[in-house]
Design a protein around this nucleic acid. Structure first.
Length: 274
DNA sequence: CATACGTCCTGCCAGC
DNA sequence: TGCTGGCAGGACGTAT
């Protein structure tokens, strides 16, 4: 569900509400989401203080006062909801509840339970983060570095973009939207992109992600920010979920195909078949 | 090693 | 109205 812009919106919403707060108690309602034993999970967190909130790819990262990090992957339907002291929480499918020192709560809610939570110490965090690809909005992500990373891969570019080891934070919505902007067919072998196309893709990725962050993400059905608000990028989607509709650029018909178990949307005229 | 596919889980919606 | 099948923003394990 949440991709980079949604995770970034969540991080920004969490920051003022949890930074400086301590964890009084942890309730685990569904331990299938934990990457570690529940007792260990609770023991590692109870009594800790949140020192800050970061994002890595589509993961929300809560930094703790002992240098460890609580890493939350939201899967398809994960939410991190905050309830201030005395407030009711809108969580319908709570999986993990963190009771905070001021009486408020942080709730990880997830209907489908595809998400995961883990506590990593400094060295495991470093190793985990290094296993992910570059941040597409960072300065070090350039057209040149992208061209280098694409290498000679024969994987369809849409699938390549979804691989978090190759590049972090891109999901199916923004992969499809960026390829549309760059006029590249989703099925093109990643390594076949030339310099001009690679520059277009690099530019398109940054543009679409920045715009979506500004709009506080896309809500198709489930996504909500920590206060329960929806993202507003939906109307700006050009092709995702618009099968049969008109291409906003050339008036052609938006097509849908399935590969890699995921839908791909594209304009058959603007994004020529490989 | 790289790539392809099924699977985890629940809810919603279109179509019959 | 009620049922069924398809589909969903992700990622991992296994097979080839």
């Amino acid at each position: 569900m949440p991709e980079l812009p949604e995770a970034e919106t969540i991080v920004r919403g969490l920051r003022p509400n949890v930074t400086g707060r301590s964890i009084r108690k942890v309730h685990v309602h569904h331990q299938d989401l934990l990457r570690t034993d529940r007792r260990r999970f609770c023991a590692l967190l109870q009594g800790r203080r949140f020192d800050g909130v970061q994002r890595r790819g589509k993961n929300v990262v809560l930094c703790l006062d002992d240098g460890s990090r609580l890493v939350v992957n939201l899967g398809m339907t994960g939410r991190l909801l905050v309830a201030l002291p005395g407030e009711r929480c809108e969580s319908r499918h709570p999986a993990i509840t963190f009771l905070l020192d001021h009486g408020g709560r942080l709730v990880y809610d997830d209907v489908r339970r595809f998400g995961s939570l883990d506590v990593l110490d400094r060295s495991r965090w470093r190793a985990w983060s290094q296993g992910l690809g570059p941040e597409p909005l960072s300065r070090s992500f350039t057209a040149r570095s992208l061209r280098h990373d694409l290498g000679h891969s024969r994987t369809p570019i849409r699938s390549w973009l979804l691989d978090q080891k190759k590049i972090a934070g891109i999901g199916n919505i923004y992969a499809n939207e960026a390829l549309f902007l760059a006029k590249i067919h989703p099925y093109r072998p990643a390594g076949s992109l030339g310099d001009v196309e690679t520059r277009a893709l690099h530019r398109a990725l940054r543009k679409i992600l920045r715009s979506a962050v500004e709009a506080r993400g896309t809500t198709l059905r489930d996504y909500r920010d920590p206060l329960g608000q929806q993202g507003s990028f939906g109307p700006q989607l050009a092709v995702y979920g618009r099968e049969g509709g008109p291409c906003p650029r050339c008036g052609g018909v938006v097509m849908r195909t399935v590969f890699g178990n995921r839908s791909a949307f594209f304009c058959s005229r603007c994004q020529p078949e490989p």
